[in-house]
Design a protein around this nucleic acid. Structure first.
Lengths: 153, 153
DNA sequence: TATTGTTATACTCTATAACTATA
DNA sequence: TATAGTTATAGAGTATAACAATA
């Protein structure tokens, strides 16, 4: 009957569970998904202007202002004057921010270990292979349908 | 180096892509993720009180009021008096709402087909098997860590 | 007394537009 | 003139608390 989206449903369930798992560790410490995303990218990029963060995150500069305000208020980042451009500010991780990111990376590794632990090497290979195909296929689907005036055909 | 969360990263990428794919079809027709979620559950449950919807969706009754307001405003649902409880209202899909849901189900089937099309039967079996293990593992992780005063041990 | 839905209030994420200070 | 970041304004999702009508 409704069994015609078996793979889709499984992927969706994984997505929901991952989201829940990541949300769980953010409660009560002044972090949210959006703020954490910024923190994560800031850690990847190193000290950055808000403009750079807006581009990387794909959100408006105004939005970054709000997120940095909140992260600064909670002590995760600092705003420093840009050394060569007095219009800009450099957003940098505080020690607390760095520690928080490190903890998150450790949590991810723990989840990864738990997941891999339940699979033998063959199963893991098959799963990885299948996921890569799914990812490629979804990228294709997005590419085709993205902007109204496409031309991949 | 940073290659120690390979599986996690793949699952995360799938989650992001799925979210993007689902968002894509909602733009410009008065729908959002939250509203669509309500519509979807309403279709599954049949005519429901807002209380029932709040419970099913795991959000506050106040939140449901806002979502139903918006969906009603855009013609996807109607509020009808509850036949036996004059405090409650029954939220029901309009014809337009039903058509929209049907279209979404069809879109899902199309994505499912595209995904399955890229895999032979063996690969599909392996992928499904791996995902089921991942889902079970994630459920375990959530269960263990969920409420502070757990007792699964 | 308990429940259904609402109004009141507040916080967060998001966007666009106008404005300031600087390039 | 263009760019970086801010203030102003607005819409959407979410929550709690207080309140009205009804069970």
């Amino acid at each position: 009957m409704a069994d015609d989206v078996l793979l889709f449903d499984r992927l969706l369930e994984v997505a929901v569970l991952l989201q829940q798992d990541m949300d769980r560790s953010l409660t009560g410490i002044g972090l949210t998904t959006a703020r954490t995303h910024l923190l994560w990218e800031l850690n990847r990029l190193g000290p950055s202007t808000q403009q750079a963060l807006a581009t990387t995150l794909g959100v408006s500069p105004r939005n970054v202002t709000g997120l940095v305000d909140a992260l600064e208020r909670h002590g995760y980042v600092d705003r420093q004057p840009h050394p060569s451009d007095r219009r800009a500010v450099l957003v940098v991780l505080t020690d607390d921010g760095s520690r928080t990111i490190a903890q998150m990376q450790q949590d991810r590794r723990a989840v990864e270990l738990a997941l891999v632990d339940g699979l033998d090497e063959i199963e893991l290979g098959h799963l990885t292979h299948g996921l890569d195909k799914v990812i490629a296929c979804l990228h294709d689907l997005m590419g085709e349908a993205g902007p109204p005036a496409g031309g991949t055909r």
